[in-house]
Design a protein around this nucleic acid. Structure first.
Lengths: 133, 133
DNA sequence: CTACCTGCAAACTTTTTGCAGCCCA
DNA sequence: TGGGCTGCAAAAAGTTTGCAGGTAG
């Protein structure tokens, strides 16, 4: 994977469209979803190129790789750190607008005796769309 | 995967040893680590059997499947729900003895307008072992 | 020009599954 | 005894990579 900081990365058409797709959705898509979407603009793009660019963009801090324990990754063009809410009924993943609980790091760090620098918090439940059906 | 509740699961030697291995460690091992460990007692066990039993045990609530975004799962014989701390230096995953923040579900649920029933919280940082080296 | 990037396809890794025989309840 | 379970091996599914030609800067 060409993501060492020493390499000067170029802005190619492929990379730009991939980034645009990710910045233009809040659906936390999989690599394959991105691939299908990008194919509409660049029909002969390859899945390998999508993966390569996702890794480069991730290493450059332009996107986030999320993981919800399904054996594949999801990607997020919203790099401002935030929590997520997953509906266990429809599977949709939403951004949580709630503020972050910054104090948890220090609180738990003191408790366990290790230096805690960040945390990841995911909420699960049933969204209103599903509850009202 | 034979994990429908309708199926009457049996206790086989393989399943018992797999469960013993998981209950006897706090290292949050991968399926392959469990496989290697179980092979010492049942040398001709197959990896497929390990995976099948891990899935059955998980569906029965006897173990937990964890996911730390590395392309493979980790398993936990400690099913009392708890948080984890991952050292980003040595990679070791420790249980967090801190009490759970039960109020987060209601607080965030009110904020986002969806029914939140549980959350998952993972801490990251540097453990004392690594910090003092 | 010359790194870096692309499409293609093969390779890799983790996990699942079909099958014929085995064994727990 | 029969339905679930096993070992084996092949298949899936997601992701990475080697290569020869293409292109951004």
């Amino acid at each position: 994977m060409n993501s060492e900081p020493s390499i000067k990365h170029r802005m190619t058409r492929q990379k730009r469209v991939i980034l645009d797709v990710l910045k233009g959705t809040d659906t936390h898509p999989t690599a394959d979803w991105v691939y299908e979407k990008v194919k509409k603009k660049i029909p002969n793009i390859s899945l390998g190129t999508v993966y390569r660019n996702l890794n480069i963009l991730k290493s450059q801090g332009e996107i986030l790789e999320l993981n919800f324990g399904k054996g594949f990754s999801r990607f997020d063009g919203n790099v401002s750190y935030h929590y997520h809410f997953t509906c266990e009924h429809c599977g949709r993943i939403r951004d949580v607008e709630s503020p972050m609980f910054e104090h948890l790091n220090e609180e738990v760090g003191r408790n366990i005796g290790h230096k805690v620098s960040r945390h990841r918090l995911e909420f699960y439940g049933e969204c209103t769309d599903c509850a009202t059906q």
